[in-house]
Write a protein that binds this DNA or RNA. Structure first.
Ligand SMILES: [Zn+2]
Ligand SMILES: [Zn+2]
Ligand SMILES: [Zn+2]
Ligand SMILES: [Zn+2]
Lengths: 165, 165
DNA sequence: TATCGTTACGTTATAATATAACAAAATGAT
DNA sequence: ATCATTTTGTTATATTATAACGTAACGATA
């Protein structure tokens, strides 16, 4: 069992990635079973493709891999986007907004908002736990040189909350 | 002079927006003059269009307004994207990654990374100046009900910094 | 196991966002 | 006036995402 709370930068280190993959697939299965949701072959297939690395993938990258796998079929975009939609809704993957790309969740089932350290060189992504700690401090801790940070909080402003009443 | 440090939620309040517009245009002019950069008619026009409101605009929204303004010309996407590129490079506007949209900077020339509170109801955006850790507290302060937060820190991981040597 | 409502998948077309590549014009420094 | 540089204009195309609608699989129930 890889504890990503202790090694939040696992994505940036050499490690037994097979174990990552197995562990996350198992967690995904269990999570879906618990919630009585169907991790269908397609959804599982997309998740497996995404588990190939700790780099985010664009929907069309995933699509290309799907079409390379089953040389007979001609999979179309909506299939991929639907699988991504399901996986995101269940917190098995996250969207990296600044890249229009998607990445597997490092610890499925977490409550707090996901936060990422994205290396613009190797393109690997580490998912860190929000907790109380400052993310920038955490980055500094990990020796991660911050280049650009995107912080976007979406919600409803006070005025609109009144009107909605 | 509107002090957005004292009123970080100015975008969510009733206020004299003409003053916002005038003030930001003046700041933009001065900033470009200081840096010996050209705030050309096109760039200024795009900035003015964006100053219409505190809501982010897509590149094609801006394009549509350009084409409505000069009914003769047929402005094409690259023109808009180039103006946006310039304005972003100089910190006069910011990109809202989670919306593929752009918004004028609330206080041009600031050093720290921009952070936003985006209302998914009225779609107005407040730019706040706080550290990442206290942003959620700030949101709470302003009565902003957080719905979804995107925190993306891009940089170079420790390993890649070694290889780059 | 036949039926039926629901969920997931497949297919086609198209919308929305963004950039490549190259030509023409404007700028500003000799 | 000339020329290098920057900015703008133009055409075409790449990339990302969704609408709309039909088919198949599933899973509960009779
Ligand atoms: Zn791994
Ligand atoms: Zn996660
Ligand atoms: Zn205003
Ligand atoms: Zn700003």
């Amino acid at each position: 069992m890889i504890d990503k709370t202790k090694f939040p930068d696992i994505a940036f280190r050499k490690h037994d990635h097979r174990r990552c993959q197995r562990q996350l697939l198992t967690e995904a299965s269990q999570l879906c079973a618990t919630r009585k949701l169907r991790l269908t072959p397609r959804r599982r297939q997309v998740l497996e493709i995404m588990l190939a690395s700790h780099q985010p993938m664009g929907a069309y990258d995933i699509l290309a891999r799907l079409n390379r796998a089953d040389s007979a079929e001609r999979i179309a975009p909506p299939i991929v986007y639907r699988a991504l939609e399901f996986l995101m809704a269940e917190g098995l993957i996250h969207r990296i907004e600044s890249r229009n790309a998607f990445i597997t969740c490092a610890h499925p089932g977490h409550e707090s908002a996901a936060q990422f350290l994205i290396c613009r060189d190797c393109e690997r992504v580490a998912e860190v736990e929000t907790s109380a700690q400052s993310l920038l401090a955490e980055a500094d801790n990990l020796g991660f040189a911050v280049d650009h940070s995107v912080v976007e909080i979406t919600g409803v402003c006070a005025e609109c909350q009144k009107h909605a009443g």
